[in-house]
Amino acid sequence: MTALLEVEAVGKVFGGLVAVSDVSFTLAQGEIVGLMGANGAGKTTLFNLISGAMAPTSGRVRFEGCAIEGRRPDEICRRGIGRTFQIVKPFPGMTVAENVAVGVLYGARRRTPSAREVAAETDAVLAEMGLSAMRDKLAGELTLAGRKRLEVARALASRPKLLMLDEVMAGLTPIEAAGALDMLRQVHETRGTTMLVVEHNLRAMMQLCQRIVVMHHGEKIGEGPPEVVIRDEKVIQAYLGAQA
């Protein structure tokens, strides 16, 4: 397997504050990898560095072998990295179908799709994500669970090779969260999309991820299969320390 994403010694400093320090890991094609850590561990910052919302102060990010750090977010999206936001950012005044169509129209593609292709693909993504019944509702009128689902749909519509999910289950009821989990597995099964997932729900992470990277105070402190990582001394200490 070749590496799809390589994060090499990436660091980010805000003023004097080190948010991410010397983090390295790789994602292989088709993998689902979890990113864990207490609040403030630097997970969302790392997402921002990979997706181009911010440029890292040091280190490299390679996607399909190309250095992408510091490039514009739209270019990174068109190269094939889609993401969702911890604090959801749908296009509230546009309908659910229009939100998804934005992804279809502007995502990773060699040429501009025809109107028929856009309509067909939008419908397909809506059906895949179970949003067909709400297609004409305004995104701003959806519940939190609906908006989170819509963000995943919009990201998927841009045909990402790598999908980065920032807490898509946080704030959902247990039933909604279970539904979201099923949906992500379904997506992985049918599309084979590589995923990088930030989530606090440990059980969901154990079920979903093949590998977990643990961060603490901006540094990577552990990496490995879920059942190994959660028994790691340093990881347990970091979590207990954060709770104490």
């Binding site: 181009g52 977010p73 992804g103």
Partner: peptide, 8 residues
């Protein structure tokens, strides 16, 4: 922000 992250 979301528009830019969606490839626009």
């Amino acid at each position: 922000v979301a528009a830019e992250m969606t490839g626009i």
